[in-house]
């Protein structure tokens, strides 16, 4: 079980604002961590709550989010 536990590494939520189109998919899928900023772009509002599930990364149509997975 231990190996499959998603790493909790909140620092690695990277959002490329120039690619984000503000569609709201990631913020819909992950209401706890992600939110929209005033300019309509996604931000990591509560990075510490990220479980590293990568749902946002696989569902962002714009390749704008990546969750770094440093397994160390």
């Amino acid at each position: 079980m231990l190996e499959t536990t998603p790493p909790r590494n909140s620092k690695n939520i990277q959002i490329n604002k120039s690619w984000c189109k503000g569609c709201g998919i990631c913020t819909g899928l992950c209401t706890k961590v992600l939110a929209m900023d005033g300019g309509g772009k996604a931000i990591a509002a509560n990075p510490s709550l990220c479980t590293g599930c990568r749902l946002c990364e696989t569902h962002c149509p714009d390749f704008a989010i990546s969750i770094g997975v440093d397994v160390n």
């Binding site: 189109k21 503000g22 569609c23 696989t58 569902h59 962002c60 149509p61 714009d62 390749f63």
Partner: peptide, 13 residues
């Protein structure tokens, strides 16, 4: 990138 698709378009997924 960024690609030409509309916001929320599934093509990128």
């Amino acid at each position: 990138l960024p690609h030409i698709w509309c916001p929320g378009c599934g093509n990128g997924i």
